[in-house]
Simulated assay, not measured.
Amino acid sequence: MKVASAALAVTAVLALAGCGAGSSGGSGGAAAKVPATATGSLESLAAEVKCKPDMQIDADELRQALCKNGAGKFVLATFATDRGQREWINDAKDYGGHYLVGRKWVAVADDGVVRSLRGTLGGDVEAGADHHAHGG
């Protein structure tokens, strides 16, 4: 289930973001001051970034929702365990995308949205496989 969930999340984000090709949503300047990494439920994290989560998966080990705010569209997921989170991220990265990673949560979107969310939620930015060479 976790691989399918990761694929679903990343596929949804890549479809919404147009694979992130030519993304221009960043500030282009020096790295902004990053707040302490947020913690909490999916709903509390969504409230922090002013989105109403559209729940896609609501299971004991994984809660996942589609979100949209002023920065753009993204997937927000919370996990029951650190190990479950890391396995999900490792599987999802094969599909590309950009990941904002906190303790037992992740946001997946194009680079500009991830960097915007980081200004509120803190966390670490990770990048998935680069598929730009696949052109189109």
Rank of each mutant, 00 (worst) to 15 (best):
T81S: 15
A9S: 10
N69E: 10
A15R: 04
G25Y: 02
L16T: 09
A109Y: 06
D94Q: 08
G72D: 00
D60T: 12
K52N: 13
S24Y: 10
K68S: 11
K2Q: 12
S24D: 15
R118W: 02
G112V: 02
V3H: 09
H134G: 11
K104R: 14
W105M: 01
H134L: 13
A12V: 04
G70K: 09
A4F: 00
A129M: 14
V114P: 10
G123L: 02
H132W: 06
S116M: 03
C51W: 00
A46K: 05
L16S: 15
K104N: 14
D82E: 15
A9E: 06
A80W: 03
M1E: 11
A38K: 11
T39F: 01
R63V: 14
A127D: 12
G123I: 01
V114T: 12
G96F: 06
P53H: 04
V13A: 15
D82F: 09
G122V: 00
H131Q: 09
L117S: 07
K73A: 12
N90D: 15
N90C: 10
K73H: 12
Y95I: 08
D91Y: 06
L66R: 08
M55A: 08
L100P: 08
Y95P: 04
A31Y: 03
D130E: 09
R83D: 15
L66W: 10
A38I: 08
S5V: 00
T11V: 15
F74I: 01
G119W: 03
D130R: 07
K104H: 08
T39L: 05
L42E: 05
A109H: 07
G72Y: 00
D60F: 13
G97L: 07
G29L: 03
C51R: 00
S23P: 07
V75M: 13
P53L: 03
A77K: 01
A133F: 12
A129C: 12
C67W: 00
G18V: 06
T39H: 07
A7G: 13
A127I: 04
L100K: 00
M55F: 12
A77L: 02
A9H: 03
H131S: 11
D54M: 06
K52Y: 01
D82M: 07
E43M: 03
D111L: 13
V75F: 05
V101H: 00
K50C: 10
L42Y: 03
Q85D: 03
G20S: 11
D82R: 12
A6W: 00
V3K: 07
G128S: 05
R86P: 05
W88M: 01
D94I: 05
A4G: 03
G84N: 11
V125Y: 06
G72H: 00
F74N: 02
T78L: 00
S23A: 15
T39N: 10
A107H: 00
W88A: 02
D111A: 09
C51Q: 01
G119Y: 02
